[in-house]
């Protein structure tokens, strides 16, 4: 096992734990407290706490820290919050738990440690879900991302009948076998937090501590934007522009990958895998918007997904040629 992984253990390295005077886990009081507890829990277990990727993505998996870094043999451990956008899920802020913009918490560890299930259960404990009071279940759910050319096996994790996380052992990404295998955990933060906090409508959920001088609810922050983006996604966005941008992103991705690896200016080997992958992310989001606008027919849908997948595969191919994505044996050679 590579040295990077030995620090993974159930004993926290540092960071606040949320215990009361008797040593019992306290209940968090706000959405952000749950996020902060997850951050410190995974930080204490050796993950690099990254910040969200600065682009529109449909899920935390799209962050290059997951897609690209799950390729190659270099050990990796990262955790981050990723704002995620699903344009078709917009409900103008009216639905109790459906949003076009929401947060995912993502943990990715390569190679997957043998005690990943226990580590995961520890994180539930840290946010106030005590397995001795709840019914926690690992229910078969094979994960597949047709746009990323990726799949893995794992479960959706149920807490008292509610899906609270997705737990996946990556087998393939961008058409490449994952060797070693990464373990990926994805928490749907709003839904999880609503359950922990006992909230029925997402907009009423306390975002910061309700005792704060200026207490803010989720609705205070996001109700208006949900309305605005719902209108934008369903009726406002210019489809002509989106179609054009999709083509542009596709072309740019190809163009960037077409460069000679050796940069004439620096005399270094620089493959622009990440910038090209940004274009793939863009194309994927543009496709989601076009889908929400209802201008993509059933038959075209498959074709568009195939085009994004082709980009993802090319980017994965390119990343595998870089230092971060190479195999250890090849690096030595």
């Amino acid at each position: 096992m590579p040295p990077g992984v030995t620090i993974m253990s159930d004993t926290p390295l540092s960071g606040p734990d949320s215990l009361d005077a008797q040593g019992a886990i306290t209940k968090p009081r706000s959405f952000q407290e749950i996020i902060l507890r997850l951050q410190s829990y995974w930080a204490a277990r050796g993950c690099a706490i990254l910040q969200p990727y600065d682009m529109e993505v449909g899920a935390g998996t799209f962050h290059p820290a997951t897609t690209l870094r799950s390729l190659g043999t270099k050990p990796w451990a990262a955790a981050y919050v990723q704002p995620s956008r699903r344009p078709t899920d917009g409900r103008y802020g009216e639905n109790p738990n459906r949003l076009q913009h929401y947060y995912q918490y993502q943990v990715i560890i390569k190679p997957s440690p043998p005690d990943l299930q226990d580590l995961y259960l520890g994180s539930l404990r840290a946010i106030g879900l005590d397995p001795s009071l709840h019914d926690i279940r690992f229910v078969e759910d094979d994960w597949e991302s047709p746009t990323l050319g990726a799949w893995g096996l794992g479960w959706e994790v149920w807490c008292d009948g509610m899906e609270v996380s997705q737990f996946t052992y990556f087998q393939q990404v961008g058409g490449h076998d994952c060797r070693p295998v990464s373990g990926e955990l994805t928490y749907g933060l709003e839904r999880l937090a609503m359950y922990v906090l006992g909230i029925d409508h997402v907009m009423t959920m306390p975002f910061n501590d309700p005792q704060s001088p200026i207490a803010l609810s989720y609705g205070d922050i996001f109700r208006q934007t949900e309305e605005e983006y719902s209108r934008h996604n369903f009726d406002g966005a210019s489809t002509d522009m989106l179609f054009q941008h999709f083509k542009d992103a596709e072309a740019e991705c190809d163009r960037l990958l077409g460069f000679e690896p050796d940069d004439p200016k620096t005399k270094k080997r620089i493959i622009m895998a990440h910038p090209a992958y940004d274009q793939c992310i863009k194309a994927s989001h543009l496709f989601n918007l076009l889908d929400a606008r209802g201008v993509i027919s059933v038959t075209e849908r498959q074709a568009y997904i195939g085009r994004v997948r082709a980009l993802a595969k090319k980017c994965a191919d390119a990343f595998r040629q870089t230092e971060a994505g190479a195999d250890a044996a090849e690096q030595g050679a």
């Binding site: 009071l133 019914d135 009948g161």
Partner: peptide, 28 residues
């Protein structure tokens, strides 16, 4: 009837309440 995989100090009250909540959301 839901089938839990565990016994709890509260005789499944929390579990049942949670399941009922999920059911309510689904049936809504």
């Amino acid at each position: 009837v839901t089938v839990a995989n565990t016994v709890t100090a509260d005789h499944g009250e929390t579990i049942l309440k949670g399941n009922q909540k999920v059911l309510a959301a689904r049936l809504s």
